[in-house]
Design a protein around this nucleic acid. Structure first.
Lengths: 339, 339
DNA sequence: CTGAAAGCGCTAACAA
DNA sequence: TTGTTAGCGCTTTCAG
């Protein structure tokens, strides 16, 4: 029968008539190098099972100066891209016999700092920082606490970073749209969403402009609407554009999946003809986006590759600043029935 | 200047010329009850800041028998419903000054057991088990380890559970669809997705049948296709139905958002006329689903309420089995432009 | 108002 | 092949 109070190696030692250290190594695998007889080990393991023993990882961590926790900070869980990142991180971390601790921080400086501090207090063995708004400040904290860390999605000046090829991706996406509208009035091409102060958005804007200038167009500030990442903000921003112009943009490149939802939410109120005429593309991917009657090419960021690469940096104890670029994947709309 | 090696209360004690226990209580807030002078406390805090001190939570945990970790097990992160659950859990947990540890276990028994064992080893102070396939086994582990725990989405016989009103929800959803097709051939009404062995799906099937029998219909086994939760499985299952019948069902109630994606993926290959004739409704919610040209009513599960209720059980140290039902929300398609 | 000392559960020398 | 012991960093009596 199992007891209801948590058992320690001392309890087992007593029942087994051996010392606690013998029990310890019988249970943590070091018994081979300590040359403890297989017989005792088996006996101990049996008793442990019977008593429903489980290690106390804090005690082990305290002794070993290694917690078995790996932390991740990301903007939010409920987002297709970040939840994929979280899923991959969870898989990879469990595969390394460690426990993932994922904290969301809404891209806000204070929350990010708070999250990182909390994770440092928990003595995480490593930290993966995803889509953070203040990478350098966070890296600073980690450096002072001597915590190996990598950045994903938004790069940092002081640590290894893994990001999408945003510039090339945005350029390719924009070109797909422009091809559909060869004679478009250049001033009716818009980029919407994101934070122009952050590298990811910044690079996408550059890529967007690249595509335009290949056509001999030059984008004005008015065509770049970096309204943030919120669904609602994107909705409002597009509405403003619509009112100012008196019409929709002819080509609209959207910077994040959250904004994409906001855009659709706005468009859904307009008459069909108006929306039909507008070419829409989105950075980030949503499977539903590919099923819409209105064809929407999308740039899927490769979450899995990004997390794996980031983990490689951690595994290799790579600490110097360097950026690894991962090419995103262009997803063109399917043909057939259109929802 | 900050040092690069982790500081302890002893380091601070030395610099401050006081004892470690004084530093300890100055830093953890117990100094008031220990009546330590505010002056020393301030001095200590200053030194701590300068040395870039941060508590070692394992040490504290070991001493206090309280880890400051709260665990969650869920099927997957990359799913709209579960990622909302994860987000709410993260928020609630951080609000309680604890750290969320979320582990995904794909609804597989071994992975679930493993995850729970890992969390028990980490001495989580409480555990929230979401959408698990083997609740009773997991509860058993927790009970033996004396860990307060709650179930969400799938109920357990031995612990408090918070679940959606699946039966009523499925009935209401089915009725919405039936209303559109008053003269439908009863045998062409299908329920697709989920695991009939699990209570959530089971209840939804009952609700589905309720709606049918109100119409005087009786569902046969062939109409209930509990093909699991995978996108791919749903795709294949629907294809089989299509081939067997020689046509699509006229009314299709889909049991989970993952299956919904699979269904759309299949339908996208068919000619418009065929799909247009089919009435589709989905349990679980996706904002894109509401924007489709093909109108899809959806039952949104209230993730936030569910997590909050679950946390209430934990806060109240409620341990006896009981089920709290949360009513899901019917979301009807928007009208206007249809994508 | 503050210090000394014990102990949380585990691991790793060092002895035996 | 196994036991003894010290100590990881912190909190908490108990003394002073």
């Amino acid at each position: 029968m199992a007891t209801n109070t948590k058992q320690t190696i001392y309890d087992i030692a007593e029942k087994a008539g051996v010392s606690a250290s013998t029990v310890g190594s019988a249970l943590n695998g070091t018994w081979k190098s300590r040359r403890i007889s297989e017989a005792t080990v088996e006996r101990i393991q049996e008793i442990a099972k019977k008593l429903n023993y489980s290690v106390n990882l804090q005690a082990r961590a305290l002794r070993n100066a290694k917690s078995g926790l790996v932390g991740m900070v990301l903007p939010q869980h409920d987002n297709r891209f970040f939840s994929s990142v979280g899923q991959c991180f969870s898989n990879e971390t469990r595969g390394r016999e460690a426990l993932p601790v994922i904290v969301s921080a809404r891209r806000e400086r204070d929350q990010e700092l708070d999250a990182v501090r909390g994770l440092i207090d928990a003595s995480v063995d490593a930290l993966m920082l995803v889509g953070t708004s203040h990478p350098n400040d966070l890296s600073d904290l980690c450096l002072r606490a001597n915590i190996p860390h990598v950045f994903v999605d938004q790069p940092c000046d002081y640590a290894p970073s893994v990001v999408s090829e945003n510039r090339a991706g945005a350029k390719a996406l924009t070109k797909v749209l422009l091809k559909e509208y060869p004679d478009v009035d250049p001033s009716s091409i818009y980029f919407l969403g994101g934070d122009a102060g952050l590298p990811a958005t910044g690079q996408r804007i550059v890529g967007f402009k690249d595509a335009l200038s290949e056509k001999g167009f030059e984008a004005t500030d008015a065509q770049i609407v970096a309204c943030g990442y919120q669904r609602r903000a994107a909705m409002d921003a597009l509405q403003r554009v619509y009112e100012d112009r008196g019409s929709l943009p002819l080509v609209l490149v959207i910077n994040s999946i959250g904004c994409f939802e906001g855009v659709l939410e706005f468009l859904v109120q307009l008459p069909s003809k108006v929306v039909d005429a507008c070419g829409i593309g989105a950075f980030d991917y949503d499977p539903f986006g590919g099923l819409l009657r209105h064809p929407v090419p999308m740039m899927r960021q490769r979450a899995e590759e990004m997390v794996k690469r980031a983990y490689e940096h951690l595994d290799n104890k790579d600490t110097r600043p360097q950026i690894t670029y991962i090419q995103p994947e262009l997803i063109l709309p399917k043909y057939g029935y259109r929802f």
